[in-house]
């Protein structure tokens, strides 16, 4: 059975990375707004997960948000566009780490399930 709750949250976590990377390459304001929105949603989805790595996952999401929101300020004020891109790259790295952690957690969860049989 597919766990639809998991599909939903994983979808936004992956989308956070892809939209972020999209902005890095396109430098497009629309993409930046989408990236911020999706990153915030991914953060919220990591709330309250009583899982093994939930603290780490939430931390990476918050890092990504705190890169992207200043990036938006810098980008739209058109003072430090380069720095904005740099921050977005930082956020992308945080998102990559978040996905790595997600995989680690998946493996650990499966192990746990096998143990309990």
């Amino acid at each position: 059975m597919i766990n639809w709750g998991k599909v939903w949250s994983d979808f936004f976590i992956f989308l956070a990375l892809t939209s972020n990377v999209g902005f890095i390459f396109s430098h497009d304001p629309y993409q930046l707004v989408v990236a911020i929105g999706v990153n915030l949603i991914a953060t919220v989805l990591k709330f309250g997960a009583k899982k093994i790595l939930s603290a780490e996952l939430l931390a990476t999401a918050l890092v990504a948000d705190l890169h992207l929101i200043p990036a938006a300020f810098l980008y739209f004020s058109q003072t430090h566009t380069d720095l904005a891109i740099g921050l977005a790259i930082g956020a992308a790295v945080a998102n990559v780490i978040s996905i790595v952690l997600l995989f680690i957690e998946m493996v650990m969860e499966y192990r746990k399930q096998e143990d309990s049989y």
Binding site: G37, L45, F47, G48, S54
Partner: peptide, 26 residues
């Protein structure tokens, strides 16, 4: 954490609606 978990969906909707709004007017 349970309380935070209950906030998931409502906050998600608020963020989604705001993002869509900004994009729409842009």
């Amino acid at each position: 954490y349970d309380v935070l978990g209950q906030l998931k969906l409502p906050l998600m909707v608020v963020i989604f609606v705001s993002t869509v709004g900004v994009l729409l007017f842009m």
